[in-house]
Design a protein around this nucleic acid. Structure first.
Length: 436
DNA sequence: TCTGGGGTCCTAGGACCC
DNA sequence: TCTGGGGTCCTAGGACCC
């Protein structure tokens, strides 16, 4: 089966090997050659493993306390994570990669896509270019990477997987340069669950349908897949067949939601302690929000007891509340979070985790924003508010203004422009409404 | 004793509108 | 008053990614 070339695109996926572990080794070369894991916050479980640790059978997410045997028998090292370091190193890697193509996208902290077809004339082959990328990133940052090359992003991910698993390719695999008969054989040996976009559930379902390998999935009709799954999977199969369905995003799009949450080292029982933690998360999330010059219109707070203690009483809950107007102000968000927490908190439980999620994110400084600024600045003077509302009244009609006075500003704007109605609860009465 | 912290997109179903 | 069809918006939940 040949890869259909419906366009001339060629993507390189550059993926750092065992990324967090590699970062740690750059700054502590004595860790070279030793089995190594990087642990989650609170040193709870392994979130990254060196090749030696993988060879010892350490799985992603294994709790640290279950690894103590390997610590004794194989001198397995566990390090607390240092996300600031990994973020800095990532920026350096991307900086090097940007020299190879102006068309690049940092997809995650340890992976970047480059569109490289325009670079064809600069290199004897794309494999040669891939080797140059590997060498330069290694020399300039100390991080080992693998490179996969293919006409679509899904295939480039797969090519990268092949480069990683097959040392004979020297860390670079150009899928378009590989004989198609051999490629069929190679892809017949890879489980369908390795495909980007195929997780555990979908893999199980595919197996049930007799689709076991990547090659099986490539031979399946996208329309048939659409009928059994979703458009996402349809695109995945189309990409596997060589037709690009996704483009590089040249600028990182603004976040549509921002989460900040954490598990506690020790369990927490009181609302006051939960609120202390929440205040930290809110301020962290608000910083991210402001960094992308956005405001949010809704805020969600969630709390969980320890699900790994089935004998303890379990309780988890979440509530999403609309804000009176879109904001990124830490104080305002914190007071909203306090109200939300009050609405869902229950005594008599030991809480393990809580967090905040900012939703309904939009760019700051829109025309809607200026309307609300007017209300905000005059917040102490009801006469001034009434005059603003009168202005809105003239603009959008009397019924809408009643809603604006009683509802949330964000919702009101959205609805008013649709000339439909909206009944939400008054901001000050939210806790009561939530309780009902 | 000890079990991560972020994100994205899609779908289904209900409320509501004309 | 009864009725249907088409449309939008919102939410919850499920799947995936690193």
């Amino acid at each position: 089966m040949t890869i259909q070339r419906t366009s001339e695109a060629l993507y390189a996926l550059v993926d750092c090997n065992n990324y967090y572990c590699s970062c740690e080794r750059v700054f502590n070369p004595r860790l070279e050659g030793r089995p190594l894991v990087v642990l989650s916050s609170n040193d709870g479980c392994a979130v990254a493993r060196s090749q030696e640790a993988k060879d010892l059978g350490v799985k992603m997410g294994t709790p640290w306390f279950q690894l103590q045997d390997l610590v004794r028998r194989h001198r397995l090292v566990g390090l607390s994570s240092n996300y600031t370091l990994y973020g800095d190193m990532s920026a350096r890697v991307v900086q090097v990669l940007s020299q190879f193509s102006p068309d690049y996208e940092a997809y995650s902290i340890d992976e970047s896509f480059l569109r490289v077809d325009q670079m064809r004339l600069l290199w004897p082959s794309f494999t040669a270019m891939g080797k140059a990328i590997r060498m330069r990133v290694r020399q300039w940052t100390g991080i080992p990477v693998c490179v996969g090359l293919a006409p679509t992003r899904t295939l480039a991910k797969l090519a990268n997987h092949i480069a990683k698993k097959n040392p004979q390719f020297g860390g670079v695999f150009d899928l378009t340069a590989y004989p198609s008969v051999d490629l069929d054989i190679l892809l017949s040996s890879i489980d369908v669950g390795e495909v980007w976009g195929v997780g555990r559930r979908i893999a199980e379902k595919l197996h049930g349908m007799g689709i076991h390998t990547v090659q099986d999935l490539r031979r399946t009709s996208p329309k048939m897949i659409r009928a059994h799954f979703s458009v996402v999977m349809e695109r995945t199969v189309t990409e596997l067949q060589g037709t690009p369905c996704m483009d590089l995003e040249d600028v990182a799009p603004a976040k549509k939601q921002i989460i900040s949450s954490k598990s506690f080292g020790a369990m927490v029982a009181s609302q006051e302690e939960l609120m202390e933690a929440l205040a930290t998360y809110v301020s962290r999330a608000a910083e991210k929000l402001r960094a992308q010059d956005s405001v949010c219109g809704m805020l969600q707070v969630f709390i969980h007891t320890n699900q790994f203690r089935p004998n303890d009483p379990q309780y988890s809950n979440a509530v999403t509340i609309p804000l009176p107007y879109p904001t990124s102000d830490t104080r305002e968000l914190t007071s909203a979070a306090a109200m939300a927490l009050k609405a869902i908190f229950k005594n008599g439980f030991l809480f393990k985790k809580c967090g905040v999620m900012l939703l309904d994110i939009s760019p700051a400084g829109t025309i809607q924003r200026s309307l609300f600024d007017a209300v905000e600045e005059n917040a102490r003077h009801s006469a001034a508010i009434m005059s603003v509302l009168d202005g809105l009244n003239t603009r959008f009609g009397r019924d809408t203004v009643k809603v604006a006075a009683a509802g949330t500003a964000q919702r009101w704007i959205a609805r008013a422009e649709n000339k439909s109605q909206c009944f939400t609860t008054r901001w000050t009465e939210l806790p009561k409404a939530i309780a009902n």
